[in-house]
Amino acid sequence: MSAPPPARRRWDGISFEERMATVDFRVGARAHIAVDADVCRSCTTKACVTACPANLFAPTADGGILFNYEECFECGTCYMVCNSEGALTWTYPDGGHGVVFHHG
């Protein structure tokens, strides 16, 4: 059993959930990013946990990663900072799906 993600902190009075709730996501049925938690278990940097602006990588008690693709900015940060070959399978969501920025 993996532990629940740690409580997300509030900066400037806005919780992370509130921050993400301002973004329009047209979630597709296909997970466009997949994480191989077995590879992550031997990762010492956990760079994705700090850098993902959508905070989608949650470390689990057993050293793995819990990932949910639904609220993703499709920015590319995670695959760029991850230096473990094979940990991430990264594609764009199917056409028309995923994030829609209105004030980008």
Partner: peptide, 25 residues
């Protein structure tokens, strides 16, 4: 959040509310 709270910046933003959060490389 740090930048928004900086003493030079905070008064410029007082009373504002978040419309959209975003990120890009």
């Amino acid at each position: 959040a740090d930048l928004k709270a900086h003493p030079t910046i905070a008064p410029l933003l007082r009373g504002s509310s978040l419309r959209e959060y975003a990120a890009h490389l």
